[in-house]
Amino acid sequence: VKHLAVGDEVFGFVFSGGFAEEVVVPSNTCFLKSKKMNFPIAASFMVAYGTSYHALKDRAKLAKGETLLVLGASGGVGLAAVELGKLMGAKVIAAASTEEKLQLCREYGADQTINYSKEDLKSEIKKLTDNKGADVIYDPVGGEYTEAAFRGIAWEGRLLVVGFASGTIPKMPLNLPLLKTASIVGVFWGDFAMRNPKLNMENTRTLMKWYDEGRVKPHIHKTYELKETPRALEEIMNRKVRGKLVIEV
């Protein structure tokens, strides 16, 4: 381990074991914590921002001036995608299920919003983009929203498959990417971090620099004690969380 020294304050990424007093972390997923960052922020930062930055930069090649649609935009990775999309020069449309969630998205820079519990997702995408469609769709939700969003994608658009928070893995009619010459692009940040540690470290340094400069501000919905972990997980399952939850040991 060359990039860290004994005594450094760090944060890391583990696939399991996060609710423990002590944990061993692979060196290529362990990072020096900014002196300006407290531990609750550090614990909630990398999965959300690391995933979203890798998705937008490395997988979608998001370009300045393009339109980015973010599904589940008030969640941890979704809100990070809204914030990073704006920082990268995109026009951002945030889609979520309540007005309260959409208000938070606007505070984080969303140019336009869609309440997909009340509005037709495809129609609203078309309306907000003057019928052009979204260049990049960031989808951590899955379920019924994936196909509806893809039907509103732009020519040569990219759908980022980030996760399935709805609990349902969607099936896509493959004539849709054919008709729009569009791409369905998988995003697995954890595996990317292990396979390409050098590029992941570069991405992490960029994100930490932006944090130090005040250009990204992670949103923590609530902090829980370790004994309250079941309640925190229920909040996530019941879709009551905006941003991230933190467990303090």
Rank of each mutant, 00 (worst) to 15 (best):
T206G: 01
G72H: 13
K126E: 14
L233E: 00
G65W: 09
K244L: 09
V249N: 09
N115D: 10
E248C: 10
K61A: 10
E119R: 03
L160Q: 04
S52F: 08
L160F: 09
E234V: 13
I114E: 06
A182G: 15
N115E: 03
V161L: 11
S183C: 09
H3W: 01
G133V: 12
Y138K: 04
E83H: 07
A20F: 04
G76F: 07
V47H: 08
V161G: 02
Y224F: 15
L178N: 05
A90M: 08
D130Y: 09
A165W: 04
G18D: 10
V23E: 12
T229G: 01
V216D: 03
N203G: 10
D111S: 05
K171G: 14
L179C: 13
M37V: 03
S97T: 10
G75V: 13
G65Q: 06
K171M: 13
E22V: 11
T168E: 15
F150A: 12
G12M: 05
T146A: 15
L159I: 09
A81V: 09
L104P: 00
L160K: 07
V1C: 08
Q103P: 01
M201C: 01
F164D: 13
Y53N: 06
H3C: 00
Y145V: 14
K217T: 15
L32G: 00
R158G: 01
G85R: 05
T206L: 13
G186C: 12
A232H: 00
L226Y: 14
G133R: 10
P140F: 08
P140A: 06
E228W: 04
E213H: 00
Y53E: 08
N196S: 14
I169M: 15
K209N: 12
L87Y: 04
I41A: 00
F19N: 15
A90N: 02
G143Y: 09
T67V: 14
N38V: 01
E213S: 02
K86P: 03
F31R: 06
K217M: 07
Q112E: 15
T67Y: 08
N175R: 08
L4D: 07
P40E: 01
L207A: 02
R151D: 13
G76N: 03
